[in-house]
Amino acid sequence: MDVQGEAARILGELRTQADPVRAENEKRYLKSDYAHIGVPVPALRKVAAPAVKSKPTRDEVVALAQTLWDVTDEGRPVHEARMAAIEILVRRVSLLERRDLAMAERLVRDSASWVYVDMIAEKVVGGLVLRYPDLAEVLDAWVGDPYMWIRRTAVLALLAGVRAGNPDLERLDRFGDALIGEREFFIRKAIGWVLRELSKKDPEWVAAWVEPRVGVMSGVTLREAVRRLPAEDAARILGR
């Protein structure tokens, strides 16, 4: 793969679909300081797809993602270029190696919005942890990190195991208790989100974990956690 040429192709095709009105609306919605082109996600994915259909190597995938991530417009990161970088990593996460967890961390630390962090957390970090279970020890450090988006990543990385039917209940238990007093909305939401997804497969565990913590759990965490529980369990827990 010609990494620079492929990055130029992707950026060029995205710019041909520029929608200034959409760009401004999206920028306002995301409260973003980035440059926005105004390309919807389905169209962006279609533009990025040829890059991964050519059977790239791990090195090519990482180089292309990093090249796109670093694209700027008048000194500002370009939203769609970063989204394309994430899309390429997600589509070829099977090529990534344990060392690439450090790259994923760099991207999260260079992010300031859920729109980038969430896909990296679940699909890239979570995917790596599923393949290399010992990497989960890194999450143990991240859950206490000063940077809020790293803490959110530690929690949302657990989603990959939940969806795969191999949940890390021990870490979910520890992380939940460690963060249950969080004031950050995005952390509270993340805990509830993981509990909600787990409740689709193991509602008994979720109900048993949530019920004794109702008095200290934030409203947003509680509402998400009980959303998919059986009605009688949800009513009993909310009644407390």
Rank of each mutant, 00 (worst) to 15 (best):
L30T: 05
P42F: 08
M119I: 09
E26S: 11
Y147V: 12
L195E: 01
G215C: 10
Y132R: 05
V214Q: 12
V220G: 06
D173M: 01
V117Q: 09
A43I: 10
W209E: 06
E211L: 13
A23S: 11
I88F: 10
V226P: 05
P133D: 03
V155Q: 00
P146V: 15
E26I: 07
L96H: 02
A8F: 15
V78H: 03
E137R: 08
Y147H: 13
A23Q: 05
Q17N: 09
M217Q: 04
I10L: 11
P212E: 10
R82I: 07
R228D: 12
P146M: 09
R223K: 11
D140P: 03
L14C: 04
R188C: 10
E87I: 06
M103H: 10
K27D: 06
G165I: 11
R183Q: 15
V162G: 00
D173H: 08
R98I: 07
K53T: 15
L222H: 04
I37S: 08
V52H: 02
N166C: 05
A208E: 15
L68E: 03
L96M: 02
V194I: 08
A35S: 09
R91V: 00
V61H: 05
F185H: 13
H79I: 09
I120F: 00
V90F: 04
G127R: 08
M103R: 09
V90P: 05
V41M: 14
Y34S: 04
P133N: 05
A81T: 01
H36A: 04
S113P: 02
R99D: 14
A225S: 13
V47A: 06
A164S: 14
S111K: 04
A18Y: 10
P212I: 14
V41D: 12
A231Q: 15
N25M: 15
A102N: 12
R9Y: 14
A235Q: 15
S218A: 10
E80V: 12
F175I: 07
G181A: 00
R106T: 15
P167R: 04
H36F: 10
E97I: 02
L95K: 11
A8H: 13
Y29W: 14
A207F: 00
M119A: 14
P20K: 09
N25D: 15
M103D: 08
A35L: 08
V129S: 00
A121V: 00
A225D: 08
A225T: 08
Q66G: 12
E170N: 05
I88T: 07
A65V: 04
I86H: 05
P42T: 07
G144P: 00
D73L: 13
A208R: 15
L14E: 03
H36Q: 09
E232V: 15
D145Y: 04
S113D: 13
A81D: 06
A160I: 06
R131F: 11
V220I: 15
E197W: 04
K123R: 15
S32T: 08
I86S: 00
R106K: 13
I88P: 03
V41K: 14
E224M: 11
E24W: 12
R183L: 13
E184D: 12
W114L: 11
V194T: 03
R223T: 08
E211V: 13
F175A: 02
E184P: 09
R131W: 09
D140L: 03
A104N: 03
D118W: 01
V216W: 09
A207H: 06
G192L: 07
L68M: 05
R76L: 10
A81R: 03
M119K: 10
